[in-house]
């Protein structure tokens, strides 16, 4: 069987009405996505280390493998080989489960994203809404993870997680609503098809700005990395995580960063559409570039304070998002 025919079988399985065929294809797809995700997270971890090192006049990893490309693998092996410790006053089950659920949810989100006109686990009519709902769960899970560890620094981190949630979730939802308004629905394929002439980035730059900023907050990236604020909270909700869980959290970090890139690429930069290269490649390239931009922000900016984030969210982002919504409605509605 050639690759093309396997791909065809796979895609037809994903759109099959036979529940068993569908289930088998989705599980296979999920496994493939997870493998690709891990490879991406791995590569991205290396790119980030190299890029940050460049900005700081360092070399970054050099010794393990060519250009230190195997350094992250070495770190991973080290972390996994270490002892699994759970603090005595932690809730053992939640403490162990939370990072795993978080990784699973990030993967679930990626399953819902279209990598090509046909390559998608399921083309939900309300795909964008579903993604938003699952994204909204993440801070709550982080909150649970933080409280389950029974550490005071993690407690503060959990409180901040909830505060962050109420400051960025609303503007993000308003932007999503205005995207849906232009695209006439929440279907992700429609949203991409709607950008065949102009990417939404050019139609509503304000929306892109707000979505990007809220995405930074969602991904806990500088200047909103308040949950893991290393200077005051040591590592926030990760303070008491021993090595294997920490390895998972690192995987989660990069997976979510890629996810953020993918979402922005789909909603504002035409998703998989692009000339010459296959659609999935276009989407990954776009996501990669957006994630690179997030790293550049990371090495430049300092951390915001939590009350300022709240004020920024309510006093600037929400009014801006409302203006964006109204403008979108008046111009394109």
């Amino acid at each position: 069987m050639s690759i093309n025919s396997i791909y065809g079988l796979f895609v037809s399985g994903l759109s099959s009405s036979n529940p068993l065929t569908f289930l088998v294809s989705v599980v296979a797809y999920a496994i493939i996505i997870m493998v690709i995700m891990s490879v991406f997270a791995y590569l991205f971890g290396w790119v980030e280390r190299k890029l940050i090192a460049k900005a700081q006049y360092r070399h970054g990893p050099t010794y393990v493998g060519k250009f230190g490309i195997l350094q992250n693998l070495a770190d991973l092996i080290k972390l996994i080989a270490k002892e699994k410790m759970v603090p005595s006053n932690a809730n053992r089950i939640l403490f162990a489960l939370a990072p795993q659920i978080l990784v699973a949810m990030a993967t679930l989100l990626i399953l819902l994203l279209p990598f090509s006109p046909t390559l998608q686990a399921t083309n939900l009519g309300v795909g964008l809404l579903a993604i938003f709902v699952i994204l909204g769960f993440t801070p709550i899970l982080l909150f649970i993870a933080a409280f389950s560890s029974g550490n005071k620094f993690a407690d503060i981190s959990g409180q901040r997680s909830v505060l962050l949630l109420i400051s960025y979730e609303l503007p993000m939802m308003l932007v999503i609503a205005s995207v849906a308004l232009i695209a006439n629905g929440y279907n992700l394929q429609h949203i991409i098809a709607g950008q065949s002439k102009f990417a939404y980035a050019f139609i509503m730059p304000i929306g892109l700005f707000i979505f990007f900023v809220t995405m930074l907050a969602e991904l806990e990236r500088t200047p909103f990395d308040l949950r893991e604020a290393d200077s005051e909270l040591i590592a926030g909700w990760l303070t008491d995580m021993s090595a294997p869980y920490y390895a998972l959290s690192l995987l989660l970090d990069y997976t979510r960063m890629f996810l953020g890139g993918l979402l922005i690429a789909i909603l504002f930069f035409g998703g998989w559409s692009g000339p010459l290269l296959p659609p999935a490649a276009w989407l990954v390239i776009k996501a990669f570039l957006i994630a690179l931009f997030i790293i550049i922000i990371r090495v430049t900016l300092v951390r915001m304070r939590i009350d300022r984030v709240l004020r920024f969210g309510w006093a600037w982002l929400i009014p801006l998002a409302l203006i964006n919504l109204v403008l979108t409605y008046v111009l394109f509605g």
Partner: peptide
């Protein structure tokens, strides 16, 4: 100081260099 207010080691490395 750059580290204390949450910059990802950029100012730190610059200062030390």
């Amino acid at each position: 100081l750059c580290n204390d207010i949450g910059q990802m080691f950029t100012g730190f490395m610059w200062g030390f260099r």
